[in-house]
Structures are given as structure tokens and as C-alpha cells.
Amino acid sequence: MANELDKIEVKPARRQFLRGAAALASVALAPGLLLYQARPAGANVDSGVRWGLLIDANALSEDDVDACVSACQREHGWRAEDGSATDAQWVRKVKLRDRASGHTRFLPVMCQHCEHPPCVDVCPTGASFKRADGIVLVNKHTCIGCRYCMMACPYKARSFIHEVLKDQLPVAPRGKGTVESCTLCVHRVDRDGADAVPACAEAVNRAGRQAIWFGDLNDPASGISQALREFGATRLRADMGLNPGVGYRGL
């Protein structure tokens, strides 16, 4: 489906203005004293890649999905307290049941790392942002806890921390008053690049059985791109044109 947002053209005059604005982004008051300095694009995040997941719904049993959830909890130190509606949910177990046949299957549903994330559009402080490599994150340093992003997200992927927390893990700082969601195991991605395996994938992939692929959607030679070519994938609510980075096989 052609993406609606891709059709929006930036007019040349506007483009000129934006270019001028970029030049003004560094304002020098005096030699060596800057009012504001535009930061160069991150040297560590490659804007040429787009990380994504392909989840094989055919290969995942209910136990596998549970294993995904508990692996994510161990990796990032969150847990569902008492099953209340306000619990942290970085990845949820979703049950699909066909009423006619009674056929049931289970899916892990996490942040879908959209190309056009609505959570980023609505954030008043810019805390909800998409990294250059396509990973959608919350910058908790600037998150004010307004929860607009939670309302905007059609996948219910984000949760809000209501309680004072202790013993957070070094790789996953999280605290009261901020919103959080799946980070695509960004600390592993930054460490291992294309060889990274998110915790959920690590929990369910076995020798000879790949159930969750992680990789660069922009690289036609990557494992995930080959699997997508071979199996195809369903994007949840593809009609909204958000182009999620997470795809499901066998829905």
C-alpha cells in the first residue's frame, strides 16, 4: 500500500527556508562562545540501516510467547506486579482466537518501531523520538510523563511508571513519572550491530528453528530481508500507514 505520508511534498521555498534555518542553528555570540550549537548526526547510529523484527507466529507456542515476555523482563528489570491495567508492559502476550474453528494462537506484541510513529508526533517535549536507525525510544531525561504517546500509540505498546522504583538495571534506567516501551534491546544493538539478538529472540530461537528474526530491513542481504522475501509478513494495522518495523509471519 502506498504510504500517505510519503505523498506529502515539501515545497522548494519551504526547503530553502529550512536550509537557512539549519545554517542559523549554530549561533556564535563571540569566538568560542556559542548560544546554541547544532549537534552533528550521531556517529554511532547509522542512518542507512533500519532495524526490524520478523516474528513467525506459526513457530511460537504459548510457552514461547511467555518465554519472550519473561526474557524481556529479566533483560530490562520490569515485571507485572499484580496484573492491574497500569502494570509495565514492554511486550504483551496477545491471544488470537478464531471463533468459527476455535483455532488459537499467541503473539508477542511490543513497540512496532513505526517509520511514522504517532507517539513521536504528539510528544510535547521531543522525548519520544525515532533514532536515525529506526528504533523508537523514550528519552526519559526529557519525558514529563504526560502520556500523550500512550494514547496515540495504536498498539498499546507503552506503559507509565506509577511507583518509585529501586534496583533498576544499568542497561535499562527507568523511574517513576516516565513512559517506557520496548527498546528493541538497543543496548545490544549498539554493542553488536547487525549481529545483535534481542532478548525475546534469544529466548525462542533454537538451532534449526528460527522464530524471531532481527536485522536491517534496508539491507537486501540480511537474514530478515531474505526471510521477508521468502515468507512475507503482515504488519499490524497496516491500513494506518505507519509502516511498522515489526512484521508477523503467518497471521
Binding site: 549537534r39 548526526a41 550521531g42 556517529a43 554511532n44 547510529v45 523520538f129 533514532r131 536507525d133 525510544l137 528519552n139 526519559k140 531525561h141 544499568p170 538497543v186 543496548h187 544493538v189 549498539d190 554493542r191
Partner: peptide, 21 residues
């Protein structure tokens, strides 16, 4: 360093709070 890490993905900074701790 916090912006370098969160936005630019630099996990190898010598000035990290994790490193302090």
C-alpha cells in the same frame, strides 16, 4: 554524555554514570 548515549547510541563513552558506579 547522556544525550550521546540515548540519541546517538554511544555506549562506549568514558564519561558514563554506569562507569562511575
Amino acid at each position: 554524555q547522556r544525550d550521546e548515549t540515548v540519541i546517538d547510541g554511544d555506549r562506549g563513552s568514558r564519561h558514563s554514570l554506569t562507569g562511575c558506579m
